[in-house]
């Protein structure tokens, strides 16, 4: 079904062409998965696209540093999850890096989101994502997670292409203290200011947005615009 090509040593050379081909034949996979990834595909998908129905997150196209950090946090217990701590604990630092680089390099290939936003949640969800609610100390999600929530390397994960339930569970986990270790407490601080209703509205809205076509890690660059 998929095309596998081994480009592990020269993958970066092929990136400029990648975006173009991708839009033409979505479904192409570039690097052969490292052996470590064999046990991940069952839940996170053959292309790292995740499994929305089971609330397993997509990994494809996420910043590599972010993914690696999460695996370390699962292993150390700062991010608590029975399944993932079991998966992460046996991994060496080197294996973590291999996996993070691999998933980060995969194109974002999710189908259009199945979910639509319930009408009563839409205005509040959109407001929080685009403008935030500064009275409550909640800056716009897109201010840190990038335009349209595409993510900003190295530290800010994408928010689109995830199920509402997964996103909701993460914010709730910060509020319950079962997820921590985020850089400078940036997300933890905001999660503590979000009511359950706000969390529900914004995660429902985010889950209904189109995941980006481009792999953000590669288009990100430092320096002023234009």
């Amino acid at each position: 079904m998929f095309q596998f090509r081994s480009l592990s040593s020269s993958r970066s050379l092929f990136w400029p062409a990648c975006g173009v081909i991708l839009t033409a034949t979505s479904g192409a996979v570039w690097a052969a998965p490292p052996p470590e990834a064999a046990s991940c595909a069952a839940c996170h998908g053959a292309q790292g696209e995740g499994m929305a129905a089971a609330h397993y997150p997509r990994l494809a196209g996420m910043p590599a540093d972010y993914l690696a950090e999460q695996l370390h946090l699962f292993a150390s217990g700062q991010r608590q999850n029975a399944i993932m701590s079991g998966m992460a604990k046996p991994l060496s630092a080197e294996q973590i890096k291999t996996l993070a680089d691999y998933y980060s390099g995969l194109p974002v290939t999710m189908a259009a989101p199945a979910q639509t936003v319930p009408a009563d949640l839409k205005p509040r969800g959109e407001q929080l994502a685009v403008y935030g609610d500064w009275k409550a100390g909640i800056p716009a999600c897109f201010r840190c997670h990038g335009p349209g929530g595409v993510g900003v390397a190295p530290a800010f994960p994408a928010l689109t292409g995830q199920s509402a339930t997964y996103l909701d569970q993460q914010i709730t986990a910060w509020k319950n203290g079962t997820r921590s270790g985020d850089p400078q407490g940036l997300m933890h601080t905001i999660a503590l200011r979000m009511s359950d209703a706000d969390t529900k509205a914004v995660t429902a809205w985010l889950a209904a947005q189109k995941p980006e076509a481009a792999v953000m890690g590669k288009t990100n660059q430092a320096g002023g615009a234009q």
């Binding site: 840190c144 990038g146 595409v150 900003v152 288009t219 430092a222 002023g224």
Partner: peptide, 8 residues
């Protein structure tokens, strides 16, 4: 940092 041409 700039993403997809937008200053974040």
């Amino acid at each position: 940092r700039v993403v997809n041409g937008t200053v974040v």
